[in-house]
Amino acid sequence: MKALLVAEYRDGQLLGSTYELVAFANQLGAESAMFLVGSDSALPQYDGPLYLADSGKYSEFNPAVHKQLLLDVIAKEQPEMVVFAHSSYGWDLAPRIALTLGAAQVSEVVEIVDGVPVAPVCNSKLRRQVKANTDRTVVTLQAGAFGLSDEPSGSPTVEMIDTDSDSAAQIEFCGYEEAEAGGVDLSKADVIVSAGRGIGKPENLEIVEVLAKALGGEYGASRPVVDSDWADHSRQVGTTGQTVSPKLYVACGISGAIQHLAGMKKSEFIVAINTDKDAPIGEVADVLLVADLKQFLPVLTEKVRAL
């Protein structure tokens, strides 16, 4: 089996997800080659052929042109599998490649069982095995699913690549906007009590906040709470917010979507309060309390204060 790994590069840096692709190929026992639109000043530590296009010339984001560069490499390497991270770069480019190749695309693969990719369904409450009907497949890998077993090492055999299809450029990339700075630095808190959509209304944020205070910590939030402007973005935990690992993380009314888990699952001790016994947060929680947070939190806060 031969796999082509599509590495990622942003703002002058090689992204760490690149090594998850390598771990995946190693787990499959696949022979691999790598593709990158990046720079020779930030090469991956990888023993194998690397097809490198210059991001200065082709832009860090330009789907039509990156697609053409990648298709040229696929034509040359003839991989059975093209592997992306399930990331803003990967889920954008992968369908474009899959369609041109006539290949099945399996998104957000979490594991491979007997050679068959497995993907989450319904907010990770279910899993499915996906059978491709095509010889060639495109996969995107869930962030963190294929961990790094070894420290990256090695140096690639670099081949610079070019394309003259700039007529294909349809999208103009005008630069990055950094995440808003300021607000709280959750990474410094020993205890984080986070509010999810289960709080129901903004007024209920207070019962989360007072518990956080009683425990000597900070309050955090899941994305819907931030999107609704009930809490500041600096409070958001998850892939598009902060990554935290406090001594205690209390998730109140949070279902446990993968993008939230990615930001908090390394916490030392995790408590979840949820009315749904089957909520996926149960997968990472040390204790899941099946309760209505509106009733439970005030009682807990009183008892903690009384200690």
Binding site: R10, D11, F61, S87, S88, Y89, D92, I171, E172, F173, C174, G175, Y176, E177, E178, A179, E180, H233, Q236, T239, T240, G241
Partner: peptide, 12 residues
């Protein structure tokens, strides 16, 4: 476009 970590890419 929203990227990982809350960074955004401006595109036209």
């Amino acid at each position: 476009r929203e990227l990982e970590g809350g960074i955004k890419a401006l595109v036209k």
